[in-house]
């Protein structure tokens, strides 16, 4: 009976450990770093954890020792040594060392960028993104996705439209708050190509939890090719369905809020849609760019994302929604 209980206990502990460790991996984990800055933070976390465990164990061990193992009277000299050594000098030196270790990382995180500047403005509840390559006089505008090259340090200039938000891609680095009317700055040096997830990390309103984005890390060659494609105007609609969709886009006034470069649509209120279909997600990291999700989003925006500025176009017929989705799907 006891043996079987012990066996069950071991299995439970092993399962809990596996579940806990599984939580450490993934594309939105600071413990699974994909960049230089995240690696520093990962190391900092490990060192702080080890330091905290040592301090906690040593001090509680000391309490246990003096209250349970040797609860009898101590000679004053010995007691003083224990209190001064274990209660003052040891924690002071350990905490001081951890502080020095943490502070020694800060200059690296304030390093200059290597040329590329990405400006991100937090809107309600999405991300306006501008790429300024070195020497650029006008930005390449996109939205709800960050693409960065590996092996170089990119400067991110952050601000916000109306509320305070926070920019955070745990796999790439630390978080930075975004304020209306004040520009904050951070630099990131990604190392491993892949698709990671970013998330607004400051409660900003009813759709805060739905304000995410994909961070796509590319090799420098792939990044240059992508940026060149991103700078190009939108592809014209290629099918009759997409052409009808473009007409609907015009008639329903979508272009008053959304820009599609290379067309007459030049709205600035909502996200730029020029290359919407080449993005990894829809609605700021919450849906996929598929026909089904596009129609769902257009018809039910405020059910999906509470208080978002875009109205739900629920009066459109299913065929019209399909045409609109076909047009948007062609914006590669």
């Amino acid at each position: 009976m006891i043996r079987s209980l012990a066996g069950s206990g071991r299995r439970l502990v092993a399962m809990a450990l596996m579940m806990a460790l599984a939580g450490c991996a993934g594309r939105q984990s600071a413990l699974s770093p994909a960049g230089e800055d995240a690696s520093w933070l990962h190391d900092l976390w490990i060192v702080m954890l080890v330091g905290a465990v040592i301090l906690w164990t040593a001090l509680n061990g000391l309490f246990f020792f003096v209250t349970r193992v040797r609860p009898n009277d101590w000679p004053e000299r010995h007691a003083n040594r224990l209190i001064i050594g274990g209660g003052v000098i040891f924690p002071t030196v350990l905490v001081g060392t951890l502080l020095a270790y943490g502070l020694s990382m800060m200059p690296h995180m304030r390093a200059d960028g290597d040329g590329l500047v990405v400006k991100v403005r937090a809107e309600e509840w999405w991300w306006r993104v501008e790429y300024w390559p070195a020497g650029a006089t006008a930005p390449i505008v996109t939205a709800n996705e960050i693409r960065l090259p590996t092996g170089q340090r990119t400067e991110l200039l952050l601000d916000a439209n109306k509320y305070i938000h926070s920019f955070w891609v745990p796999a790439l680095g630390g978080k930075m708050d975004m304020f209306p009317g004040r520009e904050t700055r951070m630099t990131l040096r990604p190392e491993t190509p892949g698709v990671y997830r970013g998330q607004c990390a400051e409660f900003c309103g009813p759709s805060h939890a739905l304000m995410a984005f994909e961070a796509v890390i590319l090799t420098p060659g792939d990044f240059a090719a992508w940026l060149e494609a991103e700078a190009a105007p939108a592809a014209p609609p290629a099918t009759p369905e997409a052409q009808r969709g473009q007409t609907l886009f015009r008639d329903e006034g979508c272009g008053a809020c959304h820009a599609v470069r290379g067309t007459e649509f030049d709205g600035l209120v909502g996200p730029d849609l020029t290359h919407l279909a080449s993005r990894q997600s829809l609605g700021a990291g919450i849906m996929e760019v598929t026909r089904e999700d596009l129609t769902d989003w257009i018809a039910h925006t405020r059910d999906i994302k509470p208080e978002v500025a875009m109205p739900a176009y629920d009066w459109l017929e299913a065929a019209e929604l399909a045409d609109l989705a076909a047009y948007l799907e062609g914006l590669k």
Binding site: V95, G96, L99, A100, L103, S104, M106, P107, R110
Partner: peptide
């Protein structure tokens, strides 16, 4: 502790 950041930053 308060002065230490000035050593590094």
């Amino acid at each position: 502790y308060v002065a230490m950041p000035a050593l590094f930053i």
